[in-house]
Design a protein around this nucleic acid. Structure first.
Length: 217
DNA sequence: GGAGCGATGTCCT
DNA sequence: GGACATCGCTCCG
């Protein structure tokens, strides 16, 4: 068993930076740009029992109607409507009969585009995440949120509750926050788990972070 | 450690 | 009816 690198060891947080919700304008851009900029930001889930926090360490960009792998490829439907709506909203869909995946809508209203959140580094509320995942209390933190289906389960994200939620609204129970953290190096690879347009380099991750899905890069 | 595969609901053709 | 932006288990080397 090789030693894991300490979480966040290769990056720096500016301790004096204030916490601020990412504004709508942050998402008003091409998915590739938004995806890159989301790395290092905090996903915050407010529950009655606890507040769960995870740092975004892996994302994928889905371009929209020109991207054969994107849900928006075949045009607007009841399912993918959020992707065509205003930026900064959660697009949550159900996949393989068992799991949910979380995306963030971007680009101006009327244009589809999204960023899939693929992995988080758990920061706060790890006990609650472990419980929601149905894992023993001794489970390693790498098992909590490393993968799009896993992180939704760990954060209690459901389509019925969170599809269409405005991530920029302070009263939402799901938000994305900037705490001043700046990733040192960003790696780019092809997207994972897709058949169509699988060669495009649209997966972005924080290099060396042990909480990315699959093996750390 | 890695390939193979089953579970399971929803959407679109 | 088939595909699916997944996960975790089994089996094999």
């Amino acid at each position: 068993m090789s030693a894991h690198r300490t979480a966040g060891a290769a990056q720096q947080t500016r301790p004096t930076a204030p916490l601020k919700i990412l504004p709508r304008s942050f998402y008003l851009d091409a998915p590739e740009q938004v995806a890159r900029r989301l790395l290092g930001k905090l996903l915050v889930r407010k529950m009655n029992s606890a507040t769960l926090v995870g740092r975004i360490v892996e994302v994928e960009a889905y371009i929209g109607e020109q991207d054969a792998a994107a849900h928006a490829f075949s045009g607007r439907t009841a399912r993918n409507g959020v992707l065509f709506g205003p930026p900064g909203h959660a697009y949550v869909y159900f996949i393989y009969g068992m799991y949910y995946c979380l995306n963030v809508s971007c680009e101006p209203e009327g244009r589809a585009g999204g960023v899939l959140i693929r992995a988080l580094e758990p920061i706060a509320g790890l006990e609650e995440m472990t419980r929601l995942r149905g894992l023993p209390i001794t489970a390693k933190p790498e098992m909590l949120t490393s993968g799009p289906g896993r992180l939704c389960q760990a954060f209690g994200i459901l389509r019925g509750d969170h599809n269409g939620v405005d991530l920029t609204n302070p009263s939402s129970d799901l938000q994305i926050i900037d705490d001043g953290f700046v990733p040192l190096n960003i790696a780019v690879t092809p997207r994972i788990g897709i058949r169509k347009a699988a060669e495009l380099p649209l997966r972005f991750l924080i290099e060396g972070n042990p909480f990315v899905s699959g093996r750390p890069v």
